[in-house]
């Protein structure tokens, strides 16, 4: 657990059930605005024991829940493919989970383009998982563009971690 960034633990604790709203970032609004939108519904899943190979914690830490991308690219690296092969094996062994694939970009780009780039990345992961036998009906994609960096410095060390696609599990398919 100590290897995980703190922010990851916080968001992982908000893993969504199949409420069809993947926005892990939507809660926590100040709620003092003049009407408008309410918070998306959020259910909580236990992370489970990281030593249990069927747990979300195991998937996140041992299988690896994310792949990283080069600047402005959505091509999967060999390391990324290996992680996704592991994800596909895990998902095929644990059919009770649905997934949301989040695409993200670093801050070195304009907002609209980064939304589209994040979608490309999420889609690249989705296509690869499908090629590995994961049922398309279990998957959704969403792009956050540059809206939700995990690292906040303005250096390549942070950018490299922010250019990512994260596979978020939810106990959506009958678990």
């Amino acid at each position: 657990m100590t290897l995980l960034p703190k922010a990851l633990l916080i968001v992982a604790a908000l893993g969504l059930a199949a409420c069809n709203n993947p926005d892990r970032y939507g809660a926590g609004g100040a709620g003092d605005g003049a009407g408008g939108f309410g918070a998306g519904g959020i259910d909580q899943n236990g992370l489970g024991d990281p030593n249990n190979p069927a747990s979300i914690a195991y998937f996140n830490q041992s299988v690896g829940d994310r792949v990283l991308f080069a600047v402005d690219q959505s091509t999967l690296s060999p390391e990324g493919r290996n992680i996704l092969i592991g994800q596909a094996q895990w998902l095929n062994s644990n059919p009770g989970y649905a997934i949301i694939i989040e695409g993200h970009a670093d801050e070195q780009g304009t907002r609209e383009y980064n939304l589209a780039l994040g979608a490309r990345r999420a889609s690249a992961v989705q296509d690869f998982l499908i090629s590995q036998g994961v049922q398309p009906s279990r998957m959704q994609t969403v792009s956050y563009g540059k809206e939700r960096p995990i690292e906040i410095c303005s250096e390549e060390a942070c950018y490299a971690k922010n250019r990512r696609a994260v596979t978020v599990l939810s106990a959506g398919a009958g678990v």
Binding site: G29, G31, G33, G35, G36, F37, G38
Partner: peptide
């Protein structure tokens, strides 16, 4: 303010 901050 036109919306609250519950959604991006």
């Amino acid at each position: 303010y036109l919306t609250d901050s519950s959604s991006i």
